[in-house]
Design a protein around this nucleic acid. Structure first.
Length: 514
RNA sequence: GGUCGAUUCGUCUAGGGGUUAGGACGUGUCCCUUUCACGGACAAAACACGGGUUCGAUUCCCGUAUCGACUACCA
């Protein structure tokens, strides 16, 4: 069992946009498979036709491609275990369900939803702790255990709707050794007679999942903690199906929780908290585009790194990991047990780290792109110079475009605080003379601009600290930004001179400095 | 309600019978500096509680509390 080939699977349902927790599950599966030299496949669990959302499957595919998770087998490229959509595997499940029935481990049930409802009400009225269709109550219901055999056959022959339920033993201790949680024991009385085959002929998750994992040779099931309660049921299924030898090892991942600590992170949190929980662009039911990591400007590598650390850590001080490094460092043993609150600040920090580590050349393309949307053209060389100046101060690629506007346009307004505090006769005097000095030059480098300014201030006996803010606001309109002399170099002396003069002529000296 | 799970700074976490309980994000102060950022330094900040076991428990055991998941012909 321990030496068998590692085969893992990611098995999402196409019921909506894959959210970030799903991406993390996929990532952990991927990291483990790669680390162990195994394979990873993707299976679409679309047994619930009522919840099918068109576009969801493509979304899964596009998301995994974006974050760099590659699959060895999947519905799109196929593979030795095709098909990889449960809807396309429909005929396979009944065979196993019938085997369970024939061997006395499952049974047909004909109860209508009204009858089930009645049962629950009856049990609740009788103050039964946990109303369920189980080893006790099944004796009072309409199923192949209570009905005469010929009546059952007649119903079946007549095409009456039925489900197949697992006949969970009355007294049994089910145990499983979870790779993350250790031994988990559950008494069979806590499990109800789960529906295996629905009346529409589709299997439920439980049956389909176990059958497919077996058929596809899955060695390790790595999935969210929300599955832990039904894991004993799956163990039981493996046992009844006679597949105990081939049963995969389970690893139930801690949940990703809301930042405020109340429940698991949900799709709705994207709106309420103003940060994305979806990886890439998605239009919701109302036709509204929801926030996504990609659209917000998160780099896939940064997101992967962030996600990897949500519940796992390498045990060293290293925090920045490429996907390849994650593969090498990954181990299931180092996955934590407790839920992890989602912290968007940390995600931003990772993004900043990754963005900063990119070359000016690469960054320039973000800037050019972003400016183009604003109708501004910028050549590569200039963009690289601007990015070199800005890279230490941005978190997202879009920041380049938003904060770099003054390289292309004269300010349309001036920071009021600076004007109020630093715009006085003395500083305006410097603004004017600096403009005159700059206009004498044909071109200007940052060094030249600096020495020109220093000479000027020396002559006038003014300290640099008293005028820099005024100069900056005159040239950029802003109170803060990168080195002003380098900004001047990029803007050029003609434009700088114009801006200085414009500012000197339009900003009135508001306050009298004390 | 029942079943299962979890519990170390605000957050992510390391650690583990004897430690000044370590790091990171965030926060604050200082330094650098023409501003903001970056960088550097420093600081505040945690073993949920109660019982055991033990010479000694944050670490092991048992309870309690709190939080969470599950409790569908959904996955």
């Amino acid at each position: 069992m321990s030496n068998r080939e590692v085969r893992v699977r990611f098995a999402p349902s196409p019921t909506g946009a894959l959210h970030i927790g799903g991406v993390r599950t996929a990532l952990y599966n991927y990291l483990f498979a790669k680390k162990m030299g195994g394979k990873m496949l993707l299976r679409i669990e679309d047994t619930d036709q009522t919840r099918f959302v068109s576009g969801a499957e493509d979304y899964i595919k596009d998301t995994l491609a974006w974050v760099g998770i590659t699959l060895d087998e999947d519905p799109w490229q196929g593979g030795p275990n095709a098909p990889y959509r449960q809807s396309e595997r429909k005929p396979m499940y009944m065979e196993y369900a019938k085997k369970l029935v024939n061997e006395g481990n499952a049974y047909y049930a004909f109860d209508t939803s009204e009858e089930l409802e009645d049962m629950r009400k009856r049990l609740e009225a009788a103050k039964v702790a946990s109303p369920a269709y189980n080893s006790i109550t099944r004796n009072t219901m309409k199923n192949s255990l209570t009905l005469p055999e010929d009546e059952v056959n007649a119903k079946l022959a007549a095409g009456e709707p039925y489900v197949i339920r697992l006949k969970v033993p009355r007294k049994d201790e089910i145990r499983l050794n979870d790779m993350i949680r250790g031994w988990v024991m559950v008494h069979s009385s806590a499990i109800d007679d789960k529906v295996l085959m629905k009346s529409d002929g589709m299997p439920t998750y439980h049956l389909a999942n176990v059958v497919d994992d077996y058929l596809m040779g899955i060695s390790h099931v790595i999935r969210g903690e929300e599955w832990l309660p039904s894991a004993p049921l799956h163990v039981l299924l493996y046992k009844f199906l006679g597949w105990e030898e081939a049963m995969p090892q389970f690893a139930h991942l801690p949940l990703i929780l809301k930042p405020d600590g109340n429940g698991k992170l949900s799709k709705r949190d994207a709106d309420t908290h103003g940060f994305p929980v979806f990886p890439i662009k998605w239009i919701d039911d109302n036709g509204k585009q929801v926030l996504s990591f990609k659209e917000e400007g998160y780099l896939p590598d940064a997101l992967v790194n962030f996600l990897a650390f949500l519940g796992w850590n390498p045990g060293t001080a290293q925090e920045i990991f490429s996907l390849q490094e994650l593969i090498e460092a990954f181990s299931i043993e180092r996955i934590g047990k407790s839920g992890t609150k989602f912290d968007i600040h940390k995600a931003k920090w990772f993004n900043q780290q990754y963005l900063r580590s990119k070359s000016d050349q690469e960054l320039a393309s973000y800037l050019i792109d972003s400016l183009r949307h604003k109708g501004i053209d910028c050549d590569q060389e200039r963009a690289e110079k601007i990015c070199a100046l800005m890279k230490e101060r941005v978190t997202f690629p879009k920041d380049f475009g938003e904060e770099a506007l003054y390289f292309f346009q004269a300010p349309s307004s001036y920071d009021e605080q600076v004007v109020a505090n630093k715009w006085n006769e003395e500083s305006v005097e410097v603004v004017k003379s600096f403009a005159i000095e700059l206009s004498k030059l044909s071109t200007v480098s940052a060094e030249e601009a600096k020495s020109t300014l220093h000479h000027l201030l020396e002559q006038k006996g003014i300290k640099i600290g008293k005028v820099m803010q005024a100069l900056r606001v005159a040239i950029t309109g802003h109170a803060a930004g990168p080195d002003l002399m380098h900004i001047i170099e990029i803007i050029g002396n003609v434009e700088t001179t114009n801006r200085l003069n414009t500012a000197a002529n339009t900003i009135s000296i508001k306050s009298v400095n004390i």
